[in-house]
Design a protein around this nucleic acid. Structure first.
Lengths: 221, 221
DNA sequence: GTCTATATCGCGATAGAC
DNA sequence: GTCTATCGCGATATAGAC
């Protein structure tokens, strides 16, 4: 682990990222590892290799960093969802895309996603409400896709979309907290596994069942 | 919400719980709602209706509370798992019991379980290692049950037990963070839903499949 | 845009009476 | 076992030079 955040852009280009960008990336890193409240602005400035006071040129207060991280993360998810739905008109295919891309994106960017998921409580009432609203909008998009897939006879209908969407996010979100980039599971493998279990379940195939071949064909787009 | 913790025992008896017990319950409550680092000992003493200094008769430091909470929670889980496995010799039935009881117990006691799950990082290295060890032991028990169910032809074998157990806990654990006791879903309903999706999946039944009737019979023991 | 220096506050924890 | 009183530190944030 480097003592300071590498100023080189993550996309491999040699263009150095701005201090503002490095600040957000460093904050996400520390907030995920130590938690928002336990992370000090001193640690953050040390990670960036600047003085503590210099942080306050880029922000008004520590909470601003958390808020910005949450907003940008949820915006990214919203865009990802839009792209998935635009890609095909088949609801089940949309849902498979959503599960795959949401998982891989969230695992690749786990600092921001993990922080957004559990540090919402640290925000002021007003800001927290805004974030919850953004999050709920994203969930609603997936819920509607699930409802459409039910109507098309592609998903079981004994569980309401409202609850099926919770089940799906259970499966995807907790991965963000145990995933390790240096572990043996890649984001793609995890995404495929969760999608497969969500659609087909973990029980052994009944002899004459054609279910698995129907549901699992394109879990990995 | 009461301003102070009710000194009456939770089991309905009129026996007042000890200050030590109320301290742990209050700590779990605040730690889940605000996070460990963001919870002050002053808030805690106010919740109990005693002076801040009085806390230190019952503990050496704040971290002791977190550690005790984690240990007791994981011990409870270990006992629950043992009971589930003792109840039947059929691996799939054991697994269904485990999913049902783990979920209902964790949701009923979400203060302690949620705290244990995400505040482990706040512990000292030594204590954190101990907690992780306890947690891993519990996971290993479930992993072995899953392996046995695979051997018995009851669970799909294309995913290793090591990973199937992660999938199962994904499904169960994230519920702890969105469950609300005053919501419309009961712990039992959530447990049943998660068990059903874990075993059978969310995809619509293929016409001739007998899978669901095999796997779902006793999801709610 | 970053620096040195510092204000101000609230935190965890302790001392010692009762 | 709980109290009053307080210590000492480290936290966020600010002032003003460069």
């Amino acid at each position: 682990m480097p003592a300071t955040i590498d100023p080189t852009a993550a996309d491999g280009s040699d263009q150095a990222s701005s201090t503002a960008d490095r600040l957000l990336a460093g904050a996400a890193d520390l907030f995920r590892r130590k938690g928002y409240a336990a992370t000090t602005t001193r640690e953050l400035s040390a990670l960036l290799g600047i003085q503590n006071a210099s942080l306050y040129y880029h922000m008004e207060k520590k909470e601003d960093l958390l808020y910005k991280l949450c907003v940008s993360t949820l915006d990214d998810v919203a865009n990802e969802l839009r792209a998935c739905i635009a890609e095909t008109s088949d609801p089940l295919e949309q849902l498979k895309l959503i599960m795959f891309r949401y998982t891989t994106v969230a695992l690749r960017d786990r600092d921001r996603h993990a922080t957004m998921l559990i540090e919402i409580r640290a925000l002021s009432d007003e800001r927290r409400n805004k974030i919850v609203e953004l999050r709920d909008k994203n969930v609603a998009v997936v819920r509607r896709t699930i409802a459409a897939a039910q109507k098309a006879g592609q998903l079981r209908t004994d569980i309401k979309p409202k609850y099926l969407v919770l089940t799906m996010f259970n499966l995807l979100n907790w991965s963000i907290f145990w995933y390790r980039p240096d572990g043996e599971l890649t984001p793609e493998t995890i995404a495929g596994m969760m999608s497969s279990v969500f659609l087909d379940g973990a029980a052994a195939e009944a002899k004459s069942s054609g279910k698995k071949s129907i549901a699992s064909k394109t879990v990995r787009p």
